[in-house]
Design a protein around this nucleic acid. Structure first.
Lengths: 201, 201
DNA sequence: CCATTTCTTGAGCGATGACTCAAGAATGAA
DNA sequence: TTCATTCTTGAGTCATCGCTCAAGAAATGG
């Protein structure tokens, strides 16, 4: 008797989700190139052969890590605020305050994986750096789009500059991630967030 | 006949300063670990033996690079502004505007070497990451000291929070460096700088 | 001239990087 | 039981890593 979901062959000896979470922690903490396959297999509790069979090569594993990170609470709060908050000002206030709470949270590595995991790469891994940079610049574009909408709806004055504001908030958020990795606390980053909001026109 | 400055032995076939500049470009662009000895020797125009004789090991070379970078225009403008400007507000205005001009300058790699050259390191090079982090946090402390002085001198109101302001400006500057590496232009970063200054109490 | 000193050079060291593969083990299907 | 399928395992691939060293070359001192 076999259920409809029964798989043939030997079943995997590890849980794919928890293994991916272990890989996420390592990439988050040390970045793409500074995390070796040996460290990954040890943390994930599997051998190289199993890793390559389940996730493909190192780049594929990293991209899957980034993808799931972007759907996790620590990675999705920006998009959620942009979608859920009725006003642009409310959205950026929430983004900055949540960043101040999330980035130094000791339950995971400090800062934002997308911001800091591929800063230093060799030439042959330039593709990985470009992958994260495109994600960051897509976020910047989403900021600008939200601010332009606010301007059209009258929330933001016609004299305001949506592109400049978007670039400013992006810089502040990326800086907050860096500061969290340098040891800044939630209290400190909350003060930064409130000061940053003072620039709202 | 020998001049008083005459050195014995075979003279070096390369200029130490230009070789160091070549190493600086590589570390600035790719970071500490992503720059190999092979790339360094090729860019510096010397062989490994000469490099190790002249600069010690890779860590020593990197620290010397960071040291000279900190004395170059691109690395010294922060300290110069803090010392030379009569008011704290003038100092931070100048720092932010110069950062907007320097970070995307195409005559050298984008951003700040101290901020981005050791973000992703393996465990055995944690010392290098700590070395740069200490420099960044020393800069933060200098910010706070300057703001406290301004408060004592009456430039800054007693209600203002020097520590919070220092942390805020540090985050903005680190974010501007990141944004420059992501392709932000001087125009864009100048707008960021002006918006950041709006937070001044 | 020769001796001494300093630098260059090319070969090569051991360790580690990402990655592969044949052989064995664990399952469902027939 | 036997087969087919899927996963695990350990050994091992080649390339590159940081780094070293003996031998030779280029300078000065005597």
């Amino acid at each position: 008797m076999s259920g409809p979901g029964a798989k043939r062959g030997r079943p995997p000896a590890f849980d794919r989700t928890t293994a991916l979470a272990a890989a996420t922690r390592l990439f988050w903490e040390h970045g793409y190139e500074a995390t070796s396959i040996g460290e990954l297999t040890r943390a994930m509790g599997i051998k190289p052969g199993s890793l390559y069979a389940a996730f493909g090569d190192k780049k594929s594993l990293f991209k899957e890590v980034v993808h799931t990170y972007g759907r996790s609470p620590a990675g999705a709060f920006v998009g959620a605020a942009l979608e859920e908050e009725p006003t642009a000002r409310g959205a950026f206030r929430r983004i900055l305050r949540e960043a101040a709470a999330v980035y130094p949270d000791p339950s995971h590595p400090a800062g934002c994986l997308t911001i800091s995991a591929a800063t230093n790469v060799t030439v042959q891994d330039a593709e990985v750096a470009a992958f994260l940079r495109d994600l960051r610049n897509a976020n910047l574009a989403a900021f600008e789009a939200r601010l332009k909408t606010a301007q059209q709806q009258g929330e933001l004055s016609a004299a305001a500059n949506p592109g400049a504001l978007a670039s400013y908030f992006a810089a502040v958020i990326q800086g907050m991630s860096q500061r969290a990795r340098d040891g800044a606390t939630t209290t400190e980053l909350t003060e930064t967030a409130e000061l940053a909001l003072a620039a709202w026109p």
